[in-house]
Amino acid sequence: MTTFDDRERAFENQFAHDQEIQFRITARRNRLLGEWAAVKMGLTAEETDAYAKAVVQADFEEAGDEDVIRKLVGDLTSAGVDVDEPTVRAALEEQTAIARRQFMEPK
Rank of each mutant, 00 (worst) to 15 (best):
D67F: 11
V83T: 15
D59C: 12
F103T: 03
E62G: 08
I98V: 13
A58E: 15
L76R: 01
G64I: 08
I69C: 10
E62H: 11
P86K: 03
T96H: 09
E93T: 12
E62T: 14
R89L: 12
D82T: 13
A58Q: 14
I98A: 03
A90G: 03
E93S: 15
V68K: 01
E61Q: 11
A54S: 15
R89A: 04
Q57S: 11
R101D: 13
E61C: 07
G74R: 10
D67V: 13
V56S: 00
E66D: 15
G80T: 02
A79P: 02
R101Q: 14
L72D: 01
L76Q: 00
V55E: 03
Q102R: 12
A91D: 05
D67Y: 07
E62P: 02
L76F: 05
G64E: 06
G64H: 07
L76T: 03
V68M: 01
V88E: 03
A97Q: 13
G74F: 00
A91F: 03
A54R: 15
L92F: 14
V56K: 02
R100T: 09
A90D: 13
A91M: 04
E62I: 12
E61N: 09
G74M: 04
P86I: 06
R70V: 10
T96F: 09
D75T: 06
L92Y: 13
D75G: 10
A79K: 07
V88L: 06
V55L: 00
E62N: 10
V68C: 03
A63T: 15
I69R: 05
A97N: 14
P86S: 11
V55S: 06
T77L: 01
I98N: 04
V73K: 00
A63L: 15
E61I: 09
G80Y: 01
E93R: 11
G80M: 01
K71W: 02
A97W: 02
Q95C: 03
R100V: 00
E66L: 15
I69K: 06
A52V: 00
R101C: 06
A63W: 13
L76A: 05
A58W: 02
V83S: 09
F103P: 02
V83Q: 07
E61V: 10
V88G: 00
A58R: 11
F103E: 07
D82H: 09
A90Q: 11
V73H: 06
V88P: 03
T87H: 11
G80N: 06
E61G: 04
R100N: 03
V81A: 04
T87I: 09
A58D: 06
V68E: 02
S78C: 07
L76V: 05
R89G: 02
V83L: 11
R70C: 10
A63F: 14
K71V: 08
F103H: 15
E93C: 09
D84N: 14
D67R: 14
A79T: 09
D84C: 13
E62Q: 14
